[in-house]
Protein backbone atom coordinates (compact mmCIF):
# COMPACT_ATOMS: atom_id res chain seq x y z
CA UNK A 1 0.00 0.00 0.00
CA UNK A 2 2.96 2.15 0.70
CA UNK A 3 4.06 1.51 -2.84
CA UNK A 4 0.89 2.99 -4.30
CA UNK A 5 1.34 6.10 -2.25
CA UNK A 6 4.77 6.64 -3.73
CA UNK A 7 3.57 6.67 -7.31
CA UNK A 8 4.19 10.24 -8.18
CA UNK A 9 4.75 12.27 -11.31
CA UNK A 10 6.93 15.32 -11.06
CA UNK A 11 6.02 17.95 -13.68
CA UNK A 12 8.58 20.69 -14.08
CA UNK A 13 7.10 23.40 -16.26
CA UNK A 14 7.39 27.17 -16.02
CA UNK A 15 4.39 27.89 -18.21
CA UNK A 16 1.27 27.49 -16.04
CA UNK A 17 -0.98 27.12 -19.04
CA UNK A 18 1.15 24.31 -20.42
CA UNK A 19 1.27 22.80 -16.97
CA UNK A 20 -2.52 22.93 -16.67
CA UNK A 21 -3.01 21.43 -20.10
CA UNK A 22 -0.46 18.69 -19.35
CA UNK A 23 -2.04 17.84 -16.02
CA UNK A 24 -5.42 17.83 -17.70
CA UNK A 25 -4.03 15.46 -20.28
CA UNK A 26 -2.58 13.18 -17.62
CA UNK A 27 -5.84 13.19 -15.75
CA UNK A 28 -7.99 12.53 -18.79
CA UNK A 29 -5.52 9.78 -19.71
CA UNK A 30 -6.38 8.29 -16.32
CA UNK A 31 -2.83 7.92 -15.28
CA UNK A 32 -2.74 6.89 -11.67
CA UNK A 33 -0.72 8.76 -9.14
CA UNK A 34 -0.20 12.13 -7.78
CA UNK A 35 1.20 14.87 -9.98
CA UNK A 36 3.47 17.43 -8.35
CA UNK A 37 4.01 20.57 -10.37
CA UNK A 38 7.15 22.61 -9.91
CA UNK A 39 7.59 25.93 -11.69
CA UNK A 40 11.25 25.92 -12.54
CA UNK A 41 14.50 23.99 -12.49
CA UNK A 42 15.68 25.35 -9.16
CA UNK A 43 12.52 24.14 -7.44
CA UNK A 44 12.92 20.77 -9.12
CA UNK A 45 16.48 20.43 -7.80
CA UNK A 46 15.44 21.54 -4.31
CA UNK A 47 12.59 19.08 -4.34
CA UNK A 48 14.65 16.16 -5.59
CA UNK A 49 17.59 16.77 -3.32
CA UNK A 50 15.53 18.04 -0.39
CA UNK A 51 17.06 21.42 -0.34
CA UNK A 52 15.77 24.97 0.04
CA UNK A 53 12.02 25.05 0.56
CA UNK A 54 11.91 21.26 0.32
CA UNK A 55 14.43 20.51 3.01
CA UNK A 56 13.23 17.53 4.96
CA UNK A 57 10.51 16.76 2.44
CA UNK A 58 8.75 13.55 3.36
CA UNK A 59 8.05 10.70 0.99
CA UNK A 60 10.18 8.92 -1.60
CA UNK A 61 11.41 9.78 -5.04
CA UNK A 62 9.01 10.45 -7.91
CA UNK A 63 8.43 7.58 -10.33
CA UNK A 64 8.48 9.81 -13.42
CA UNK A 65 9.75 13.27 -14.17
CA UNK A 66 8.24 15.32 -17.01
CA UNK A 67 10.74 18.07 -17.66
CA UNK A 68 10.46 21.22 -19.73
CA UNK A 69 13.74 22.52 -21.16
CA UNK A 70 13.43 26.27 -21.39
CA UNK A 71 12.89 27.59 -17.92
CA UNK A 72 14.10 30.63 -16.02
CA UNK A 73 17.03 30.36 -13.58
CA UNK A 74 17.93 26.70 -13.96
CA UNK A 75 16.94 25.16 -17.28
CA UNK A 76 15.83 21.62 -18.01
CA UNK A 77 19.24 20.46 -19.32
CA UNK A 78 20.90 21.35 -15.99
CA UNK A 79 18.18 19.61 -14.04
CA UNK A 80 18.57 16.55 -16.23
CA UNK A 81 22.34 16.57 -15.74
CA UNK A 82 21.93 16.78 -11.95
CA UNK A 83 19.39 13.96 -11.90
CA UNK A 84 21.51 11.67 -14.04
CA UNK A 85 24.66 12.53 -12.14
CA UNK A 86 23.33 11.67 -8.73
CA UNK A 87 23.26 8.06 -7.63
CA UNK A 88 19.92 8.45 -5.76
CA UNK A 89 18.05 9.89 -8.73
CA UNK A 90 19.76 8.67 -11.88
CA UNK A 91 17.36 5.72 -12.30
CA UNK A 92 14.22 7.87 -12.28
CA UNK A 93 12.88 7.96 -15.84
CA UNK A 94 12.91 11.47 -17.26
CA UNK A 95 10.81 12.54 -20.23
CA UNK A 96 11.62 15.85 -21.78
CA UNK A 97 8.47 17.59 -22.92
CA UNK A 98 9.37 20.70 -24.78
CA UNK A 99 8.44 23.04 -27.56
CA UNK A 100 12.00 22.96 -28.84
CA UNK A 101 12.80 20.84 -31.80
CA UNK A 102 16.37 22.06 -31.77
CA UNK A 103 18.67 19.26 -32.68
CA UNK A 104 21.25 20.48 -30.19
CA UNK A 105 18.71 20.15 -27.39
CA UNK A 106 17.71 16.70 -28.50
CA UNK A 107 21.28 15.48 -28.85
CA UNK A 108 22.32 16.98 -25.52
CA UNK A 109 19.34 15.41 -23.76
CA UNK A 110 20.05 11.96 -25.07
CA UNK A 111 23.73 12.41 -24.24
CA UNK A 112 22.74 13.10 -20.66
CA UNK A 113 20.64 9.93 -20.54
CA UNK A 114 17.10 11.15 -21.05
CA UNK A 115 14.58 8.37 -21.36
CA UNK A 116 12.34 10.04 -23.87
CA UNK A 117 12.18 13.30 -25.76
CA UNK A 118 8.75 14.57 -26.71
CA UNK A 119 7.90 17.70 -28.66
CA UNK A 120 4.75 19.25 -27.31
CA UNK A 121 2.23 19.34 -30.14
CA UNK A 122 0.00 22.30 -30.55
CA UNK A 123 -3.19 20.34 -30.88
CA UNK A 124 -4.71 19.68 -27.50
CA UNK A 125 -5.68 16.14 -28.35
CA UNK A 126 -2.16 15.34 -29.35
CA UNK A 127 -0.81 16.93 -26.19
CA UNK A 128 -3.02 14.96 -23.86
CA UNK A 129 -2.24 11.86 -25.81
CA UNK A 130 1.50 12.44 -25.46
CA UNK A 131 1.19 13.08 -21.76
CA UNK A 132 -0.98 10.08 -21.24
CA UNK A 133 1.25 7.76 -23.18
CA UNK A 134 4.32 8.98 -21.36
CA UNK A 135 2.63 8.35 -18.03
CA UNK A 136 1.26 4.99 -18.97
CA UNK A 137 4.43 3.81 -20.53
CA UNK A 138 6.80 4.83 -17.80
CA UNK A 139 4.51 4.10 -14.88
CA UNK A 140 2.62 1.13 -16.08
CA UNK A 141 4.80 -0.76 -18.44
CA UNK A 142 8.18 -0.07 -17.07
CA UNK A 143 9.06 -1.60 -13.84
CA UNK A 144 10.78 0.75 -11.59
CA UNK A 145 14.43 0.15 -11.19
CA UNK A 146 15.29 -1.41 -7.87
CA UNK A 147 16.38 1.00 -5.20
Amino acid sequence: MEVIETIEILLVEDNPLDAELTMRGLKSGQVAGKVTWLKDGQQALDYLFRAGAHTGRPGGEPRLILLDLKMPRVDGIEVLRAIKADESTRRIPVVIMTSSQEESDVVKSYDLGVNSYLVKPIAFDALTEVARQAGVYWLGMNRSAPR
Binding site: N15, L17, D18, L21, R24, K70, T98, S99, S100, Q101, E102, K120, P121, I122, A123, F124, D125, L127
Partner: peptide, 22 residues
Protein backbone atom coordinates in the same frame (compact mmCIF):
# COMPACT_ATOMS: atom_id res chain seq x y z
CA UNK B 1 15.51 33.24 -33.00
CA UNK B 2 14.38 29.91 -34.36
CA UNK B 3 14.50 28.53 -30.91
CA UNK B 4 12.41 31.44 -29.66
CA UNK B 5 9.97 31.03 -32.46
CA UNK B 6 9.68 27.32 -31.90
CA UNK B 7 9.39 27.65 -28.20
CA UNK B 8 7.89 31.02 -27.48
CA UNK B 9 5.54 31.17 -30.42
CA UNK B 10 4.39 27.62 -30.04
CA UNK B 11 3.64 27.98 -26.35
CA UNK B 12 0.93 30.64 -26.65
CA UNK B 13 -0.43 28.91 -29.69
CA UNK B 14 -0.66 25.70 -27.78
CA UNK B 15 -2.42 27.56 -25.00
CA UNK B 16 -4.88 29.08 -27.48
CA UNK B 17 -5.60 25.71 -29.05
CA UNK B 18 -5.59 23.86 -25.74
CA UNK B 19 -7.84 26.20 -23.89
CA UNK B 20 -10.20 26.53 -26.84
CA UNK B 21 -10.45 22.79 -26.59
CA UNK B 22 -10.98 22.90 -22.86
Amino acid sequence: FSYSVSHDLRSPLRAVAGFARL
